[in-house]
Amino acid sequence: MTNDRDIWSRFKSGDDESLTLVYSENFKKLYLFGMKITTNQTIVEDSIQDLFSDLVRNRKKLGDTNNIHFYLLKSFKRKLVRQLQKENRYRLKNKDEDFEFNITYSVEHFIIQNETADLKFQSLQLAIAKLKPRQKEAIYLRFTEELEYNEIAEMMEMSIESCRNLLFRAIKSLRDSLKGDTSIFLFFLQKLT
């Protein structure tokens, strides 16, 4: 998105069309991201409303950005977590690590080519289920939202280096799960044929 900076500056100068554009391009993404952090739809919806109402209210005072998507995602997460903390202030300590990042991964839209892939897929699902919430969050931000390392690091309040490590270890554990199972599978296949 090369024209993010333009859209943003038009929005800041009070242009209504750019608000509609920014909203419609980001609403679903924010909503889905929010639903990974909590199942409470009301809070997710209220936080989105709050986010945009604040943006409109303070539009003249906003900083520049050339990545609106990241800017919104980051402010949205902050708002949502604060809201959840307020709501659950008895249940949770103050750090957002207490918010489990939950993802259900889909099988449906992944067309399974052959039985090998099917088996691989199952062992992958198992490996994914073992990932820690923070790994899941980093994976979501990287492979669904396509954020850069520095952006993920900023959102998750960690250094870029540890963000890289976190992702690398997660990916490696997924890859390792493929290795083991395929060889076993091939071994059986050979025996059968």
Partner: peptide
Amino acid sequence: LIIKSIQPTSLEISQEKNDEIFRRIKAS
């Protein structure tokens, strides 16, 4: 395979929801 398998199930969000929240923002 790995990249595809770590894509989350998408959740249906109705257009009405989209519009409703936009209306709320406009109202404020």
